[in-house]
């Protein structure tokens, strides 16, 4: 009986020790590499003030008609995200067709691979740096934020759109082709209608992310709620930090709920 049981070779038997040691070394390297500055003395006090600010927000800041209040800036943040996502959804379509691999193409196809690399590059390029570059071009303000969101979002939308194209059902394309349609007919009447619901769903998903990033782009001067938030934190105006945080939480939650319910209907 015993010879039926396959004897584990050395690697299979003790391999996990090797991996455990590697992981352990990685952690030791990380823990010793970081300088833990410890907490500054005011840490407890500051966190208490933040929590206190959250429970006693400065309600007067919610709306005062000056255009610099919470309500106007939240709307502005949403506008940045909305416009940025819309522009980027349009710009992403050519990138998606560039990066999508055809059925009979190899894994290392020149067009598709180069397109995928460009998308990785755009995705990795920090959005903050992009915002600062656009501030140089159009000056500080929410327009720079719109441009940053619309360029940065191409990286993710192009990837998701491209994958949608790769996985789409080709039946209707073939039908148009066999009925004698031209390439343009095929694209307009078969490809686009087939992938449109997926494109819309991904765009909405990206809009949810864009709302989050639009709310912090203001920290570098690209408009929206980020600017007064950073200012309030630096001047230690905790009641104002509290109301802004509440505003961001409510805004993000609402947008997630609305966009999520629309996405459920689409797919």
């Amino acid at each position: 009986m015993t010879e039926n049981i396959k004897k584990q070779n050395f690697a299979a038997r003790y391999g996990w020790i090797f991996w455990a040691v590697i992981v352990l070394l990685f952690y030791v390297w990380s823990i010793t590499g970081l300088k833990f500055s410890g907490l500054q003395e005011s840490a407890g006090e500051v966190s208490k003030s933040i929590v206190n600010g959250l429970f006693h927000p400065e309600w007067g800041y919610f709306y005062d008609g000056s255009g610099e209040d919470l309500f106007s800036l939240i709307i502005q943040t949403l506008a940045i995200a909305f416009l940025g996502t819309f522009v980027s959804a349009i710009l992403s379509v050519p990138f998606a067709f560039w990066a999508a691999r055809g059925l009979e193409e190899n894994k290392l196809h020149l067009r598709s691979s180069s397109g995928k690399f460009v998308l990785v590059f755009i995705r990795t390029f920090p959005e903050l740096v992009l915002a600062i570059m656009f501030i140089k071009a159009v000056g500080p303000g929410s327009f720079a934020g719109v441009l940053a969101v619309s360029i940065h979002s191409i990286g993710m939308l192009g990837k998701l759109f491209g994958e949608a194209i790769e996985n789409m059902d080709r039946g209707s394309e073939e039908a148009i082709q066999s009925a004698g349609g031209s390439k343009a007919d095929m694209w307009l009447l078969a490809t686009m209608p087939t992938i449109m619901p997926e494109f819309l769903s991904y765009t909405l998903y990206r809009f949810e992310i864009a709302v989050r990033s639009a709310s912090i782009l203001g920290m570098v001067g690209a408009g929206g709620i980020g600017t007064p938030l950073l200012f309030a934190i630096q001047t230690r105006n905790w009641p104002r930090v509290g109301i802004i945080l509440l505003g961001i939480i409510v805004m993000v939650t609402m947008i997630d709920l609305i966009s999520g319910s629309i996405r459920k209907k689409l797919v």
């Binding site: 500055s37 840490a43 912090i216 920290m219 961001i248 939480i249 939650t253």
Partner: peptide, 17 residues
């Protein structure tokens, strides 16, 4: 989950330095 990463960073810089 609603809080963006940079916002958390700004808060934690205020708290722990």
């Amino acid at each position: 989950r609603t809080l963006p990463d940079l916002l958390l960073a700004a808060l934690f810089v205020a708290i722990v330095g």
